[in-house]
């Protein structure tokens, strides 16, 4: 097994709904190795998106005993805000189910935005060139100056993937990237991810769909906020469990 790159250790996350405390993640641990495609599989409400958010630095684990996220051995949530911003910006790339592109910006501007935020604005030409290359690679070369609303769902998601890759992150985190797309378009997106994976990109993908889960190298099954035992996994398709913990 290659190097461990991203690790969630005993992650806990509790949401407050009014007075009630709703535990979403309870004691979930998982490991991602360099070059690996890990799928987090679970039904809605299982805590799979939350797990991804914690890994991606978008949400904090519980303050008390909430576990930790290690990126290359560095505990992310113990770092300064500045480092966390940097982590979100260039160490990982995040792809959302609902694309989350900025409506005011063009396709190319959306793509190079993380590079500009990261301070690569000085090397504007360079990041524009890389952004253009990525978009051309995803078949959007003719769409550079279009606005997101002029694009189809599949095209938008490809822009979102290009944006996630602009700063050459170590890990790509994808939260139900096909959840808002029809099957054919979804498969196109998965093909794009597959080819990136072949090129050596580490991917963590969240889905509720077994067929999609099969594309990855390993699967972590989440149920009620906990990693399910391998025995239970046999029922859901016999996918080899991630060798976590």
């Amino acid at each position: 097994m290659s190097n461990l790159i991203l690790e969630g250790i005993r992650l806990k996350k509790t949401y407050q709904l009014g007075r009630a405390s709703v535990p979403v993640l309870r004691d979930a641990s998982l490991q991602v190795h360099e070059g690996e495609w890990v799928t987090i599989l679970g039904s809605s409400g299982s805590g799979k998106s939350t797990a991804l958010h914690l890994l991606g630095g978008l949400d904090r684990p519980d303050k008390i005993d909430g576990g930790s996220v290690l990126f290359k051995g560095e505990s992310i949530w113990e770092q300064t805000n500045r480092r966390i911003n940097q982590y979100r910006n260039s160490d990982i790339g995040f792809v959302f189910q609902f694309y989350h592109l900025l409506p005011e910006l063009t396709v190319l501007e959306n793509t190079v935005l993380p590079a500009m935020i990261g301070g690569f604005g000085n090397a504007a030409e360079k990041s524009r060139t890389r952004g253009t290359q990525l978009l051309e690679q995803f078949g959007l070369g003719h769409r550079l100056s279009h606005r997101p609303r002029e694009l189809s769902g599949g095209e938008r998601q490809r822009v979102a993937i290009a944006r996630a890759l602009i700063n050459e992150p170590s890990v790509l985190l994808a939260d139900e990237p096909t959840g808002n797309l029809d099957e054919a378009t979804g498969n196109e997106i998965l093909d794009v991810l597959s080819s990136l994976h072949v090129e050596g990109l580490t991917i963590v993908l969240v889905t509720h769909n077994l067929d999609i889960a099969r594309r990855g190298d390993s699967v972590v099954h989440l149920r009620h906020g906990q990693i399910d035992h391998p025995a239970n996994l046999a029922h859901s398709g016999g996918i080899a469990p991630n060798q976590a913990t």
């Binding site: 940097q86 910006n89 500009m116 935020i117 301070g119 690569f120 604005g121 000085n122």
Partner: peptide
Amino acid sequence: APLYDAHLVYQLLL
């Protein structure tokens, strides 16, 4: 590490 102070360009763009 990227220069986090050089935010001007994207802020102006936005």
